[in-house]
């Protein structure tokens, strides 16, 4: 029992360290992309017509005259303490406006994931065990359609039918802090449906192939030759081994959720991190872009690390390794 705990603990620690390391590398990348390359924040904000003097003064004000490595150090130190810097356009602390928006985004994405993940896994498994049959073919065509169309197409169709034609839901997902939980659910229902459709389709297809690769293992054939029913073979022999690959599929596909959330927020004018970031990009408010990008990337890295840890925890091979 001690052994089991040690191996698991060690592997989990490894995953956590790897996640932190990745996040560090990502922060360097984000900072480098926005700060070291030409066209810095000063010229971006002041425009091409600004005199060299104004640019110089502005650069000094922003601290851009210092070496990049020093600026990165300051930025990172701030980030670790929860300070993402100051917006160039509003001159307000970025953290103050980012945090409520990030919560909104988490609400939207979490709501969608809560429905999409079990739906996709269930449908993916059903498609896999019915490979080649009608259910599978329908799932294949429908999901292929859903991954092919852009997010905004799904969103506009939903608005056109459910909001404009039928008048069931609002066209815009306006939320404000004092809003009650069920009101929130109600106004976000269309963006959530759009997200579910996109994410479910991707996840379903990958779950299906993960389950199929387990089903082609010799021990599945052996289970049939032992006289087990199809149901028992799937429940007792296939699914326990498919769990780990399915978990990584889910984590991987949350990337589509992140991309989707940015576009969907813009379509429904939802006050989330995605819309905020897009806004900052068009205003070239680099510190805000950095902060938002870091939050998105951190979420993605964290979810993947979590998935890794989960697959370690449920793997019987690792649970009691000889080493």
């Amino acid at each position: 029992m001690r052994l089991f705990k040690n191996v698991i603990t060690r592997m989990i620690l490894e995953r956590v360290m790897l996640g932190i390391l990745t996040l560090f590398a990502v922060s360097v990348l984000i900072f480098a992309a926005t700060s070291i390359l030409p066209g810095d924040a000063a010229t971006a904000v002041l425009g091409q017509g600004a005199t060299p003097e104004t640019v110089k003064a502005y650069r000094e004000e922003l601290g851009l005259d210092r070496p990049a490595i020093v600026r990165y150090g300051d930025w990172l130190a701030g980030v670790v303490q929860g300070d993402l810097g100051t917006s160039l356009t509003t001159r307000q602390p970025i953290s103050d406006s980012v945090i409520p928006r990030f919560e909104n985004t988490l609400f939207l994405a979490g709501f969608a994931a809560l429905i999409a993940v079990p739906l996709a896994i269930g449908l993916g498994i059903i498609a896999a065990i019915n490979e080649g049959r009608l259910v599978d073919r329908v799932a294949n065509i429908v999901s292929l359609g859903a991954i092919s169309v852009p997010e905004f197409f799904v969103a506009y169709l939903l608005i056109l039918f459910f909001a404009v034609k039928l008048g069931l839901f609002p066209t815009l997902a306006t939320v404000f802090p004092e809003m009650g939980f069920f009101d929130r659910l109600y106004v976000t229902i269309l963006p959530v449906i759009a997200l579910i459709m996109i994410v479910t389709a991707h996840m379903l297809r990958m779950t299906r192939s993960a389950v199929l690769s387990v089903l082609s293992q010799p021990y599945i054939e052996m289970a049939f030759l032992k006289g087990l029913r199809r149901r028992s073979v799937i429940m007792q022999h296939a699914l326990p081994n498919a769990a780990a690959p399915i978990i990584s599929v889910v984590a991987l596909n949350l990337a589509y959720l992140i991309v989707g959330v940015v576009v969907i927020e813009v379509v429904f004018v939802y006050p989330g991190l995605g819309q905020y970031m897009v806004d900052a990009v068009s205003k070239r408010d680099l510190p805000v872009v950095q902060g938002c990008a870091l939050l998105f990337a951190a979420t993605f890295v964290a979810v993947n690390a979590l998935a890794d840890i989960l697959s370690v925890a449920i793997n019987p091979r690792l649970r009691r390794s000889r080493h």
Binding site: L29, I30, T34, L37, I258, V259, V281, F296
Partner: peptide, 21 residues
């Protein structure tokens, strides 16, 4: 490449476009 892949595509694109226009 593992590190590059840990940033979602659209987010990555937004970062670069904000820097370069």
């Amino acid at each position: 490449v593992d590190i590059l892949l840990s940033i979602p595509v659209l987010i990555f694109a937004l970062i670069v476009l904000s820097a370069f226009g």
